[in-house]
């Protein structure tokens, strides 16, 4: 039973990681590319880390929860770097499929 759950989590994680990178390679302008990796990857790595926590908790000596720390850290930092990248792209005025907003000096 646990084996199946672990396998499911590992496969989901790997598939979502792949889909995130596929979005990065496949989509056609920078802003849409930004969507793929920042999301699919957090969920992918998240479920891989949960699988790892489960695996070591049931096999090793005692509870192993430090994977939660990486998950937490990724969930806090991923949106920040995505936001900064989007801001940098607006600053550089990269070409976009969507109509870009009118110029104004943004901060924060």
């Amino acid at each position: 039973m646990l084996d199946y759950l672990l396998s499911f989590l590992i496969l989901t994680g790997a598939v979502f990681t792949l889909i995130g990178s596929l979005g990065l390679a496949r989509l056609r302008d920078f802003y849409t590319r930004l969507h793929g990796p920042t999301k699919a990857t957090t969920l992918g790595v998240g479920s891989l880390l949960i699988a790892s926590a489960l695996y070591f908790s049931t096999r090793g000596a005692g509870l192993s929860l430090h994977e939660v720390l990486v998950t937490l850290f990724l969930f806090i930092t991923a949106p920040v770097s995505a936001h900064l990248l989007a801001k940098a792209a607006l600053h550089l005025r990269l070409k976009s499929l969507a109509k870009p907003p009118e110029e104004e000096g943004g901060e924060a």
């Binding site: 936001h83 989007a86 801001k87 943004g106």
Partner: peptide, 24 residues
């Protein structure tokens, strides 16, 4: 951060006077 985490949307810029958030 929440907007960035939920897929399909991305917060791109906060207006200088903090009244609008630009979302992609």
């Amino acid at each position: 951060n929440t907007i960035c985490l939920t897929p399909g949307t991305l917060s791109a810029r906060l207006a200088q006077d903090r009244t609008h958030l630009l979302v992609h």
